[in-house]
Nucleic acid binder design. Structure first.
Length: 266
DNA sequence: ATGGTTGGGGTCCAA
């Protein structure tokens, strides 16, 4: 028996500030599963009841004060998945869930600071070390035959047309060759398919984030595709549709990231 | 040319 599933990855940049935005998005798109990053609140302050009232009573979340925080919010019952701390830090960057034989991993990979050097920049070392550990974990504990979905703000735009300027961005954290190599290693660990690129040719520009610092985000259009939904090989044949809801960057008081939406049969 | 803005928590850090 197959079931249609609509899953979303969205860096919300404060779940409490953007409850009305979340409600509007859920009303417009009706996902089955909403995965959030940068919820920026401790678990005791997570707006569980407000989100349950929107039709998403099944929730698994991890938060700390001020920074990071991830959540998996669902219409359908979830079981807790296998999660752990990465790079020796309990900083709420990963949460996992299981439903209907599929394991869902929601990641918020460290941004990595400004300098693309592991020696001088501890934040960059954290980013690459986090990805290496996660790659090894999937290689050692999971296989390409497992039914898994990995989503999140991975803070890396891997392909030339995932950035507004490949040449300029190749020196900037988020699109440097070493980060792209690390992300490729994570992707290859269980042969994850990059679902948006399954639907959209590599020749076409595709962004999910635009800086707050631009005077006019749409006019400048200096975007990056930092947010991803990956699936393992057994789920590829069921992929139906993918969308990055770019127009939401123009909503009032937006996150700097927009949702990535994928429909698949599981 | 190294700006610019946003969010959380508290008078700065991270993105």
């Amino acid at each position: 028996m197959t079931q249609n599933l609509r899953i979303v990855s969205w860096n919300i940049n404060s779940v409490r500030l953007r409850l009305a935005t979340i409600e509007r998005f859920l009303h417009d798109h009706s996902p089955d599963i909403l995965c959030l990053q940068e919820t920026k609140t401790m678990d005791e302050f997570f707006p569980r009841e407000a989100i349950a009232a929107m039709g998403y009573p099944h929730q698994i979340f991890r938060g700390i004060k001020s920074y990071n925080g991830v959540a998996i919010l669902s219409r359908l019952p979830l079981e807790e998945g296998e999660s752990r701390h990465w790079y020796g830090r309990e900083d709420a960057r990963h949460v996992a869930a299981r439903l209907m034989g599929v394991e869902i991993h929601n990641f918020y990979i460290p941004a990595g600071g400004d300098v693309a050097d592991e020696e001088s920049n501890p934040k960059f070392a954290h980013k690459l070390g986090f990805i290496r550990e996660a790659s090894d974990w999937f290689s050692d504990h999971r296989s390409r035959q497992d039914r898994m979905i990995l989503v999140g703000d991975l803070n890396i735009a891997p392909m030339e047309n995932d950035v507004w300027s490949h040449k300029y961005m190749s020196k900037i954290v988020s699109h440097t060759p070493i980060e792209i190599e690390h992300l490729a290693r994570l992707q290859a660990s269980v042969d994850f398919c990059d679902t948006m690129r399954h639907f959209v040719p590599a020749t076409q520009k595709l962004y999910s984030w635009w800086s707050y610092r631009a005077k006019d985000w749409a006019e400048a259009n200096r975007g990056l595709r930092l947010d991803h939904i990956w699936v393992t090989p057994p789920l590829v044949a069921g992929l139906q549709r993918g969308e990055i809801v770019a127009a939401m960057r123009g909503w009032e008081s937006p996150s700097d990231h927009v949702p990535v939406v994928v429909d698949l049969k599981i």
